[in-house]
């Protein structure tokens, strides 16, 4: 029996009077690799923030590992890469090591202390993300792609059961992006890490994700990439030519 990781029921959310999410219902089970796609302003980031308890829905409910986000305590089971990484203070004086180590805080009680023994976990991630040469640099001194890899390392450091990534490939060049998606696929297959990833590259992510969730304030499509490519509804929604272009990369 598949274990439910995220369950969203009749979820709606409004900013003032504008409905941003409308009556969403879906379930993500252990081992799923979900590509969350949709146009700008379709509510993708809002949805993951609501799942993580950063925003409060006006209607409906969310269950995260069987609990509401407010009651959920095992945050080390979730690795999160926020979208706004480019907006943090570029003069912040933290080193790459300090930033990655801060990912361990969800494992710590009071007082939250990073011990010398935690250095091993930090080094492992530095090696995994191939960022050895920048590990003592300040986060603000790095390029967008390097910062992205550091923040992915921070999200992965606890070996989470669920990985939520908001546009992780935005600052990566195509070669690194392919490598990164391969890495996520391997993580998903070898460790059964459940992954939810926001991207605009619907065709690209289709090659790696087990399911696509196409959002435009409401759910337009939720299913496998193969189902997406053969769906007549999607053919009508996107136009058959666009559907063919999106799916062509996968064939």
């Amino acid at each position: 029996m598949s274990v439910e990781i995220i369950s969203v029921n009749s979820l709606s959310l409004r900013y003032n009077s504008l409905e941003v999410l409308s009556n969403l219902s879906f379930t993500i089970t252990a081992g799923d690799f979900i590509g969350l796609v949709g146009p700008n302003g379709s509510g993708k980031t809002t949805l993951i923030k609501t799942i993580l308890g950063l925003l409060t829905p006006v209607e409906g409910s969310i269950s995260l590992f069987g609990l509401s986000p407010q009651d959920f305590k095992e945050w080390h089971r979730i690795g999160y890469l926020p979208q706004k990484f480019t907006f943090f203070n570029p003069f912040f004086p933290a080193t790459v090591r300090e930033v990655i180590a801060s990912g361990l805080l969800s494992m710590k009680g009071f007082p939250k202390r990073i011990k010398k023994s935690d250095g091993l976990a930090v080094e492992r991630l530095i090696h995994l993300m191939e960022i050895e040469e920048i590990k003592d640099k300040l986060i603000g001194e790095l390029s967008g792609g390097q910062q992205q890899r550091v923040l992915v390392a921070r999200a992965l450091i606890n070996e989470p059961d669920l990985l939520i990534l908001d546009e992780p490939s935005a600052a990566l060049d195509p070669e690194v992006r392919e490598k990164f998606f391969h890495f996520l696929q391997k993580l998903n297959q070898d460790k059964r890490t459940t992954i939810m990833l926001i991207t605009h590259d619907i065709g690209g992510i289709g090659q790696y994700a087990s399911k696509l969730l196409y959002l435009d304030r409401k759910i337009i499509f939720y299913g496998s990439f193969e189902e997406f490519c053969t769906s007549q509804d999607m053919g009508s929604y996107f136009g058959e030519f666009s559907q063919h272009l999106i799916c062509h990369r996968h064939v």
Binding site: K49, G53, A94, L105, K108, P111
Partner: peptide, 23 residues
């Protein structure tokens, strides 16, 4: 500051991530 150093660090650096770390 000594007891809450890492909570303060994480919240100052990236408040959203700090929240999802249970801080």
């Amino acid at each position: 500051i000594f007891f809450f150093y890492n909570d303060l660090f994480s919240t100052t650096f990236d408040e959203e991530f700090a929240k999802t770390s249970g801080i």
